[in-house]
Each structure stands twice: as C-alpha cells, then as structure tokens.
C-alpha cells in the first residue's frame, strides 16, 4: 500500500520571521508562508500545484526537498520520514528526490562545463566511477535531447531551452524516484515550453518518475498533471483530479482563477464569463481570520470570517475548503484554458 505512494507531505508549516529579532522587545512579524499543507503523490503520477505569487508554492517545493526546514509537519519519501534525516541518510535521500528550477540561467554554474554539471553529482553519489563517467553523461545528454558532442561546452553557449534540458539531465543523473519541478517552463518561449513538457512526459513514461509540478500557468498544469492542488495564502483550498478541478471547480477562488486566463480565441471576447476579483492577495503576515479568501470572495458571510472551512470531500469527488462550494459546472464553449 505505502509502496504506491512516492511522496507525502503531512501538515507542513513554514513560518518565516521578519523584521527585528525581538531582542529589544519589539514584536517580530511572522510570515505564514505555508500553513498546514498535506498532499499525497502516487508513484508514477504528477501532482500539479497552482496558485498566484505569494501563495507559498515555491516554499512548499523547498520544504519537501528539504532545502529549508519546516516549522512543523513531516515529509515522507518512499515510506521513510525524511524530515529529521541528517548526514549520510540525508545524502541518500537527496539522490531519490531531485529538483528542477525555474531560471535556467541562474541554476547552472557558469564556470562549470556541462560534463561537470551533470557528471559531478553522479560521481559524488557513487553512481559512476571516473572511467565511465563521460559515457554515462553523454548518454543522459542524448536522452534529454542535447548533442553529446557539447560535453565540454559551458552554460552561456546554450539557449534557454537547452539550459533547461541540462537542468533536467542533472536532476535525472542521480536516478531519482521523485522530481520536484518549480516553474520549469515559465522562463521559456511558447514553442520551447511545449518541447520541454513533451520531454518531461516521455521521461516519466520511460523511467516511472513521479512529479510535483509547480506552476502559475494553469494550462501547462492542466496538460501535465493527474492531480491538481490549488493554493491560496499558504493553504490548499482545493485538490482533485485535474479533469474535475478544471471542468467543475468547487472553490470560488479556483473558479475565479480559471476564468481569468485569457482564451486564445477572439470570438469568445467579452462574453462576460470572467469573474473579476477585486483587490490583491492579503499579506501572509496578517492573513484574514476564518477563510483566507473571504476578503475577495463574492459569497463570503459572517460564518466565513468566524470559522475556517476544513479541507474535506464534498461528495462529488471534490476536496475543497469552502463553506459554500460552487455547484454549477463552468460552461465555456471549448475549454476554459
């Protein structure tokens, strides 16, 4: 049973303190970046995490890969609690859980050749030995669509899309079981985005990888994800099968988010399908009481301010944190995004 679960987050919390240290009696501000997030990633599947800037999705990526330490909660990888690992056990865990970053420019060391960037982690983890390192690296380069003859080149000699392929090859070099991809295509041009998404899907099929795929672009997530979690101000407000969430969103925020995506079809212009959210996302330093979305929600009542809605199943296969979930499916000619 637990063997079918690749990665699990249990009630993860990350609070950052800002401002003065409080030594002089001044109160510090606590940014509640991630506040009680749980999810389960089945093996070989893709969990998409969407939300606007500041919703905590990148913090969540860093928490599950243990690049930062959670304030509380735990992360379970392949049935092992990795929250408190250190030393050798931590290094072994890092082999199985790799991350791909958004910016293909700043995530590669400009002074290292491609051979070093992909080969070093393999040697350090003891996956290859010096004599066959080059052959292994070139094999990986081929696999991600890079020319193996470019083994000795440096990052600046590659385009954005090729650099992202290098980042993917580096993540794959350790034969991980789970890859966390934090906005892996948002810095790329549309035509290149499609190439990278196809590559990620093919690799998943061939190697049985599980992905946590974080993005703000709803159509990208719709394409690649099996399950989708929608985050708002540090919490998951809705989670479910991608098909369900996109065609029949339960949370008002999900519905508003989907309706805001521009449709690449001029004949649908001005059909009034857009829900116009007023204002901005509140500060995570002082989030609203009760439901965090209530300050921008057109359905909010006194109940929403007083009682925080729990994330629970609604009977229609949707898991949502809302006192008044949406009933009607969104009816949009083609498809919303």
């Amino acid at each position: 049973m637990s063997n079918d679960i690749a990665l699990q987050a249990i009630d993860l919390v990350k609070h950052f303190s800002t401002g003065s240290s409080g030594v002089l009696g001044r109160a510090t501000n606590i940014v509640q970046a991630v506040d009680g997030v749980s999810f389960t990633l089945p093996r070989g599947k893709t969990l998409g995490i969407v939300g606007e800037s500041g919703c905590g999705k990148s913090t969540l990526a860093r928490l599950v890969t243990r690049l930062i330490e959670p304030s509380s909660g735990s992360v379970v990888l392949d049935g092992v609690d990795i929250t408190n690992l250190s030393g050798k056990a931590l290094r072994e865990m890092r082999r199985k859980l790799q991350i791909i970053f958004q910016d293909p420019y700043s995530s590669l060391n400009p002074r290292h050749s491609i051979g070093q960037i992909i080969g070093d982690p393999m040697r350090i983890q003891g996956i290859v030995t010096r004599p066959n390192e080059k052959a292994e690296v070139q094999d990986l380069m081929q696999r991600v669509g890079l020319n193996p003859e470019h083994y000795n080149r440096y990052p600046h000699e590659f385009s954005g899309g090729q650099r992202q392929r290098i980042g993917i090859a580096r993540a794959l070099s350790l034969q991980p079981s789970v890859i966390v991809a934090d906005e892996p295509v948002s810095a790329l041009d549309v035509s290149i985005q499609a190439q990278i998404l196809n590559l990620l899907e093919n690799l998943q099929k061939d190697l049985g990888l599980s992905y946590v795929f974080i993005a703000h672009d709803l159509s990208v997530v719709r394409h690649i994800a099996d399950q989708v979690a929608v985050m708002y101000l540090g919490k998951i407000v809705e989670v479910g099968a991608a098909v369900t969430v996109y065609s029949n969103p339960a949370h008002p925020y999900t519905k508003a988010l989907l309706s805001a995506v521009p449709v690449a079809n001029p004949s649908m212009r001005g059909l009034g399908r857009r829900i116009r959210l007023v204002g901005d996302v509140p500060s995570p330093i002082d989030p609203p009481s009760g439901c965090r979305f209530r300050t921008r929600c057109w359905k909010a009542t006194d109940l929403c301010a007083a009682v925080e809605p729990p994330l629970q199943a609604d009977g229609a296969g949707r898991v949502v944190a809302c006192h008044f979930p949406e009933e009607t499916p969104v009816t949009i000619g083609q498809s919303p995004v």
């Binding site: 385009s159 899309g161 035509s191 499609a194 394409h223 690449a264 498809s335």
Partner: peptide
C-alpha cells in the same frame, strides 16, 4: 501555425504530445 498549434494543443484537454516548433529561434 506553429505558435497556434502549440497553444491549441496545450488548451485541449487531451494528454497527448504537444505540438512543437522544432529547434530554437
């Protein structure tokens, strides 16, 4: 055609391979 193809295949609900433009600018 390539641009529209990439956008349209992304917005369709199918999971098939996306239409791409080979190479880079």
């Amino acid at each position: 055609w390539g641009l529209l193809g990439a956008v349209n295949s992304l917005s369709s609900s199918g999971r098939g391979a996306l239409a791409t433009i080979a190479g880079s600018p």
